[in-house]
């Protein structure tokens, strides 16, 4: 405002500038819209392919069998198509992973955001990010060749392929995701809220637990959702270290296959396109999609319930 008053170019010139600026704004808007649409279309495309390929599968196999049979052996002579063993494998490994990643990730976030000095935070964060960058194959072999043997020292009956070892390693792998997203959420809590707590005579710990954490709940839930998605979708660690035997069990001391482990196993095998075995991975993929989707919806609802209002 003040600058135009200072210079006051002729009206026509100022109008011309506006036209140009409006044009640029429009172009930017259209580009942004296409980017947003692209993401949406890709998602729709994925769902479309999943559904069409899976519908081929469901022409041969009844949905009832798929959802209730406790045996999954599509590649065998005596083929069974019950998804339950893959679901139990996925849920068990995810449960083990999250029961490690959620508590440790949360505590790490609280420490980094509320207690660590600036210097500590600046040196710990890159290490966490490094952990994120390690290829998951490495974690898989780490589980198989290091963690499981270690666990076998405690429990000699533990089979070489089990869900506990890879579950733990997955948990470690997910800690940095949860810690870093939750820490961002806690740091976003405005300082005046902390000051209010300190002014009441609260300690650092009381402030962190009673004020900052509840204020950051929605972001912390987002961190958990990210962790859950990572756990459910993780492939290599379980494919390598949990064995690839679909078994209907929730006992982490047994080996099992997860949905994702099954998908890579088939996708990397030499099954002809269009065969029932090949199509089965799309049916499995659809289940994976639904599980992730349900968790995201739940997370979304939880976040809305706890939406930040400072």
């Amino acid at each position: 405002m003040t600058t135009t008053q200072l210079k006051d170019p002729p009206i026509s010139k100022r109008l011309a500038k506006n036209i140009k600026r409006n044009f640029i704004e429009r172009v930017i808007e259209i580009i942004l819209m296409f980017a947003a649409l692209a993401a949406t279309f890709i998602t729709i495309g994925i769902v479309y392919i999943l559904v069409t390929e899976a519908s081929g599968f469901f022409k041969e196999v009844s949905i009832i069998e798929f959802l209730t049979s406790r045996q999954w052996s599509p590649l065998f002579e005596d083929a069974h198509y019950g998804i339950l063993p893959l679901i139990s494998g996925t849920l068990t490994t995810s449960f083990v992973a999250l029961s490690i990643a959620i508590p440790i990730g949360t505590v790490a976030a609280i420490y980094l955001s509320e207690f660590a000095s600036h210097k500590t935070r600046e040196s710990v964060k890159p290490v966490l990010e490094l952990l994120v960058g390690v290829p998951t194959v490495v974690f898989g072999y780490f589980a198989l060749l290091f963690v499981t043997p270690l666990l076998q020292k405690i429990n000699p009956d533990l089979p070489t392929f089990n869900m506990l070892g890879p579950g733990i390693v997955m948990g470690v792998m997910i800690i940095p995701y949860i810690a870093s997203v939750a820490e961002d959420a806690m740091r976003a809590v405005p300082m005046n809220m902390r000051e209010g707590s300190y002014a009441m005579g609260a300690t650092k710990f009381q402030t962190a637990i009673r004020v900052v954490t509840p204020a950051a709940t929605s972001g912390i839930i987002a961190a958990y959702i990210l962790g859950i998605s990572r756990a459910v979708g993780e492939t290599m660690v379980v494919a390598i270290a949990a064995g690839q035997q679909p078994t209907f069990t929730f006992n982490p001391l047994e080996g099992a296959a997860t949905i994702t482990a099954y998908i890579v196993q088939v996708a990397m095998g030499d099954l002809p396109h269009g065969s029932l075995g090949y199509q089965s991975i799309f049916a499995a993929g659809m289940v994976l999609f639904v599980i992730t989707f349900v968790f995201n919806i739940l997370g979304h609802m939880a976040r809305k319930r706890f939406a930040e209002r400072y």
């Binding site: 809220m193 209010g196 707590s197 009441m200 004020v211 509840p214």
Partner: peptide, 22 residues
Amino acid sequence: FQKPNPFPKSIYENVAYGLRVR
């Protein structure tokens, strides 16, 4: 403070806060 800074808690718990931390 200048800007009201209630905690993300119920009205009751806001007032009880100082007692709780004591």
